[in-house]
Design a protein around this nucleic acid. Structure first.
Length: 510
RNA sequence: GCGCCUCUAGCUCAACGGCAGAGCAACGGACUCUUAAUCCGCAGGUUUCGGGUUCGAAUCCCGAGGGGCGCACCA
């Protein structure tokens, strides 16, 4: 053995390496030193007297270099340190925002000096002192006492760039939230919008209910479900794809106005606008029809916008301005299609004719689809993409609406609408089909397509038919896609940016 | 499912066939008004993983894994 390896060995002393392990070890070591000073790095509680938001609210507009004479105790995460020898500036972040701590050697306690010396970015701390403004005029706490509330053992992301990698942002949302203000902004919009929707529904006398997520048979929408197994009953269960059928059974039971903010699960593709797990708000209201549904949806979206962003002007992505100002136009689907393709189409048309139009516009189709489904495909591919500002598209073929009531003047069409904004569907609603025999027939038709291999056909639901036989009043039903609404309000393009913990492949073991 | 792109220090990014670098964070030091503080110093790497080509690979090729974006299905 030569001398060289010995030198290398001493240089690779773990204490000297600045690898992640060493960064973390530094912090553990500081924690130990704190304990040596008799300081508990994980105290059980802290009495704060104010939040950053309260302080900024109360003392906004003070001149520079003001001593208010008022003491405060605040708590939060340490996100920045700017040292000047005997004077140190800290930035503390709590749920409401940030505030500057000014720690002067001449003012701080002996304990505060020890804690200050052993702090790391990311630590949770409590600070007590006088509310002042700095010479530059920034509201600050002139710190007398510093308390460590919880030691952070991992280094924070770059304070300027934050956490950028989408993979890590989604997998470790807690880090994304603590490091990226933009991410917090998006979720604040989400929580405010949902709270506003709840408040609106309560105010309109809707009862909030909960219906099964584990169901013997998933219905209420056309989608592929997830399956699981229930051990106790030894049965196969589906995760719900929509709460619709159970909610209408509650209307049968006498709850005239019900709604549910429902997590739905669909075993389908993941992309920027689809998540296997997503949230919808469905509401059912006895004695109304689909026109009432449109009124309700418009009110919901406007209330959510007002509460969360206080604006009806939105820019989505880089450059897609949307104006939410109502009232929103209500346009008949068949009229609009006629404008786009240059001829009047109808579900009762011979299917060859409708196929010809689809060919003309490069809209692909399957041989078993009738004219109604083909018209819907034309809507989905060539009409939807032209929409920017909100519009209700009204009147959909029976063939693609197995749970909607037939129009009074046209048995091949239903009283159904979709709300479209920015080339996406946001809400769906209709006058509910409440004639048991007719519903049974619709189910039978769906069962036939299932037999032909359509994995998304609506299953026959005997319990639902039985419920209808007890009598469902005329009912207006709507479903609003919450995630897409939040995307719109926050102006983001990816559904995973509005879901706290989106579904990801499990992390690879190290 | 198919195609394209991507993975480099804890974080954000360079280097694109020729010694693996910077900023932030860290560590040591100076500093009582900074706020992306500043200044001096020091350190930090299995370039996602496994093969291959080459005198030489972060770089080129093949494969695996993670992620992203399109297309298809769906809301």
């Amino acid at each position: 053995m030569s001398k060289k390896p010995v030198d290398q060995e001493s240089q690779s002393d773990p204490d000297d390496l600045r690898t992640f392990e060493a960064l973390s070890a530094d912090r553990r070591k500081k924690r130990t030193v704190l304990e040596d000073h008799g300081i508990n790095p994980y105290p059980s509680r802290y009495d704060r007297t104010a939040t950053t938001g309260e302080l900024h609210g109360r003392f906004e507009g003070l001149e520079a270099d003001v001593f208010t004479g008022e003491n405060a105790r605040i708590a939060g995460r340490l996100i920045s340190i700017r040292g000047h020898g005997k004077l140190v500036f800290l930035t503390l972040q709590d749920h409401a925002g940030t505030i500057q701590l000014l720690v002067q050697e001449s003012k701080r306690s002996a304990n505060a000096a020890i804690v200050l010396d052993l702090l790391d970015l990311g630590d949770w701390i409590g600070a007590e002192g006088e509310v002042i403004t700095s010479r530059r005029g920034e509201l600050s706490l002139d710190v007398v006492e510093l308390t460590l509330l919880s030691k952070s053992l991992r280094p924070l992301p770059d304070k300027w760039h934050g956490l950028v990698e989408t993979d890590t942002r989604y997998r470790q949302r807690e880090v994304d939230l603590l490091a990226n203000p933009e991410s917090r902004r998006v979720f604040d919009i989400r929580f405010k919008a949902i709270a506003a929707l709840r408040a609106l529904m309560n105010q309109q006398n809707f009862i909030e209910v909960e219906t099964p997520i584990l169901q013997p048979q998933a219905g209420g929408a056309l989608a592929r479900p997830f399956f699981t197994h229930g051990n106790a009953l030894d049965i196969e269960l589906s995760l719900r794809i929509a709460p619709e059928l159970y909610l209408k059974r509650l209307v049968v039971g006498g709850y005239e106005r019900v709604f549910e903010i429902a997590r739905n699960f669909r075993n389908e593709g993941i992309d920027t606008r689809h998540s296997p797990e997503f949230t919808s708000l469905e509401a059912y209201s006895a004695f109304g029809d689909f026109n009432d549904g449109m009124d309700l949806v418009e009110g919901m979206v406007l209330a959510a916008a007002e509460a969360s962003i206080d604006s009806l002007e939105i820019t989505v992505g880089q450059d897609r301005p949307i104006n939410l100002a109502g009232p929103w136009p209500r346009r008949k689907l068949l009229d609009w299609i006629e404008e786009l393709v240059g001829q009047r189409l109808h579900p009762s048309d011979p299917v060859e004719n409708t196929r010809k139009v689809c060919d003309q516009f490069d809209v692909p189709y399957l041989p078993e689809w009738g004219s109604g489904k083909l018209i819907f495909e034309l809507y989905d591919t060539i009409l939807l993409s032209t929409i920017t500002d909100p519009v209700f598209v009204c009147g959909f073929p029976v063939e693609v609406s197995p749970l909607a009531r037939q129009s009074n003047d046209d048995p091949t069409m239903t009283d159904r609408f979709e709300l479209c904004i920015d080339a996406k569907e946001f809400a769906n609603g209709y006058s509910e089909l409440n004639i048991p025999e007719e519903q049974q027939e619709r189910f039978n038709t769906e069962a036939e397509s299932a037999k032909r291999g359509d994995a998304e056909a609506h299953p026959v639901d005997a319990a639902y038919i039985r419920a209808l036989e007890y009598g469902l009043p005329p009912t207006s039903g709507i479903g609003l896609g919450i995630d897409r609404l939040i995307m719109l309000l926050a102006g983001v393009d990816a559904i995973r940016d509005v879901i706290l913990f989106p579904m990801m492949r499990p992390e690879a073991p190290h």
